[in-house]
């Protein structure tokens, strides 16, 4: 329960992506990212499973909304995407954690998450497992964990990731394939 009362925000001690970025800017990034996620999630439910809204569109939308802000002015679009990827990850994990808690009989929290579980794919547990595995991966190879965040949570392509992490595209491809396989196997073990 303690976990649920705590409010989510970007934790700079965990890994400062951009130390100069003010707290309120990150706060806004979170809210913008979240509202986009919510919008997309509901669009997908309405139009059913064939909807093709990608993380790329999602992050691009957030970028358009926030790019005029002076706080983001010094950020390149790619760096912004990387930060957005981090935000997406934390938001989804937090949402999944709540959903998971509810499913397992947690306190009823009004206007958060409750009954609608059966409507969507039960992804909450998988997301939480991915998150835990990603944390482990960060200890083994921080760069690879970042590649995953950029690729999966921010929807960046290999060229963009290579540019933002300053590595070759081939390295990105190798990092991604190995990390994905390892995370996938970790997920199976969690089941």
């Amino acid at each position: 329960m303690q976990q649920e009362k705590s409010e989510i925000f970007f934790d700079p001690s965990r890994e400062p992506i951009h130390p100069a970025m003010p707290r309120h800017a990150l706060d806004d990034l979170f809210s913008a990212a979240y509202e986009e996620l919510r919008r997309l999630a509901s669009a997908i439910r309405r139009t059913d499973s064939n909807a093709t809204v990608s993380a790329t569109t999602l992050v691009n939308e957030a970028w358009i909304k926030l790019s005029h802000s002076p706080d983001f002015a010094y950020q390149s679009k790619l760096h912004f995407k990387r930060i957005a990827g981090r935000a997406m990850r934390q938001l989804l994990i937090e949402a999944a954690r709540r959903k998971h808690a509810n499913k397992r009989g947690g306190d009823f929290a009004f206007v958060t998450f409750d009954e609608a579980i059966q409507h969507g794919p039960a992804r909450a547990g998988e997301l939480l497992a991915i998150d835990a595995a990603l944390d482990k991966l960060t200890e083994l190879s921080p760069r690879q964990a970042m590649v995953v965040e950029c690729r999966f949570f921010a929807g960046m392509d290999a060229t963009q990731i290579a540019q933002v992490l300053d590595i070759s595209e081939a390295t990105v491809q190798r990092d991604w394939r190995a990390a994905k396989a390892w995370l996938g196997s970790a997920l199976r073990q969690a089941d």
């Binding site: 999630a41 990608s54 989804l92 969507g120 992804r123 909450a124 929807g155 994905k180 997920l187």
Partner: peptide, 25 residues
């Protein structure tokens, strides 16, 4: 890992679809 690579993993999912699974209205 090779099995996961061959079969595809959760990470091959579309993010928005994942979001739809965890974010409710």
């Amino acid at each position: 890992m090779l099995a996961a690579d061959a079969e595809g993993t959760f990470l091959d999912n579309d993010l928005a679809r994942v979001a739809a699974g965890v974010i409710e209205e």
